[in-house]
């Protein structure tokens, strides 16, 4: 049952809820943390889309980023799992109830190190969920160790240089066959909002790798995950616009200048081309573009790759309509005659 808004004077979304209904507990992260900026966009995106909060399940692993599901959507069930293992919990939750909209928030430590295996297999199964990596290149909660996404040559707060090759989670996701891969920046709310909304409309795993500066341990000169560095280096591939399925589509652009992607629920993602050659449907191009950008230390953002037609885990599971968790005994316990038949075969 949808509760009517407490103050009718406040503006409401299409299901009659206010922005406040999508908020969570106050954040306990450091002032200025990139994660809080992402949280704010999640709240806004879900509010504007008019998603019923009770249909959402929010999940996370361990780390600063993984605390954030407590800071949005208080009206949704939440699950703060063990370090790096959120993908398996999300998979189980989806198996039990395919109608839940799953949003997972992880970090670069949680996903690129301890949880790399589960991340890969989640993508491989194309589990329908929004998977956000709040990527800051450091372990914040344990005070500033490098993570596996730290760029080579990036300097830590205590002056150490990272010597190892970074793991590019977008590149990895594309390699693994992910059907929705976006990269963004906590300091680019407009782009992030469009990607979040599109991810919510995608049927399959939507990976969003969002550079989210750690103001305490990785925002200094020499860091490649700082606000300053990201702001200076960000190179958007396109301007993104999102038109939800319940709004009228208008044509207000010159033919050829915009690429239109129709998503599973009928919503549209509009990509206004900036770099003429980029086509996010071209997997090879996506990979070569990213490799080149990494070499040139460019910080590319936008929709890196999309294959909205790829079959997702639920369609492959061939399930009955009702969520498995809701099936009554009559549908899950075979009859007495079945046991008798099996017993006769074993005699």
């Amino acid at each position: 049952m949808v509760q009517s808004p407490s103050n009718p004077a406040q503006s409401t979304n299409r299901i009659g809820l206010t922005l406040a209904d999508y908020k969570g507990a106050p954040s306990t992260l450091c002032d200025g943390c990139g994660h809080d900026a992402i949280t704010a966009q999640i709240i806004k995106a879900f509010y504007e889309l008019g998603i019923a909060p009770h249909q959402v399940a929010k999940l996370s692993g361990i780390g600063c980023s993984s605390k954030t599901p407590a800071y949005f959507l208080n009206r949704a069930h939440g699950f703060n799992s063990v370090h790096g293992r959120m993908p398996s919990v999300a998979t189980g939750a989806n198996m039990a109830n395919k109608d839940l909209l799953l949003i997972g928030v992880s970090g670069d430590g949680d996903t690129a190190s301890i949880g790399l295996g589960q991340f890969c297999h989640l993508v491989r199964r194309n589990l329908p969920m929004i998977y956000i990596i709040e990527n800051n290149g450091v372990y914040g909660l344990t005070k500033g160790q490098f993570s596996a996404t730290a760029d080579m040559g990036s300097k830590s707060k205590v002056g150490k240089l990272n010597e190892y090759t970074p793991i590019d989670l977008c590149g990895l996701a594309i390699e693994l066959g992910c059907g929705f891969v976006g990269r963004s920046f906590a300091g680019d709310p407009k782009q992030l909002m469009a990607l979040l909304k599109a991810a919510a409309s995608h049927k399959g795993t939507a990976v969003l790798d969002v550079v989210s500066p750690c103001v305490t341990f990785n925002n200094h000169e020499g860091s490649t995950k700082s606000y300053k560095y990201a702001k200076e280096m960000e190179t958007p591939l396109h301007e993104l616009g999102f038109i939800p399925f319940y709004e009228q589509i208008t044509v207000d652009y010159e033919p050829g200048s915009v690429q239109d992607v129709e998503l599973h629920d009928g919503s549209h993602l509009r990509l206004k081309k900036l770099d003429k050659g980029y086509d996010p449907r071209n997997r090879e191009l996506a990979i070569t573009t990213m490799l080149k950008a990494n070499e040139e230390k460019q910080f590319l953002t936008g929709l890196m790759f999309i294959d909205e037609k790829k079959p997702d885990f639920v369609s492959m599971s061939d399930l009955v309509d009702a969520p498995l968790a809701t099936l009554p005994q009559e549908r899950t316990r075979p009859g007495k005659e079945v046991l008798s038949k099996i017993m006769a075969e074993l005699m």
Partner: peptide, 30 residues
């Protein structure tokens, strides 16, 4: 022809029990 069950061969036992717990949380017999 639709299944009243879901099965996954997981990537390891950590994932297997994680899935079982995720499903148990969401109300399935896992």
């Amino acid at each position: 022809g639709k299944n009243t069950f879901a099965v996954v061969q997981a990537e390891d036992e950590l994932a297997a029990v994680g899935m079982a717990l995720g499903a148990g949380w969401a109300g399935a017999r896992s």
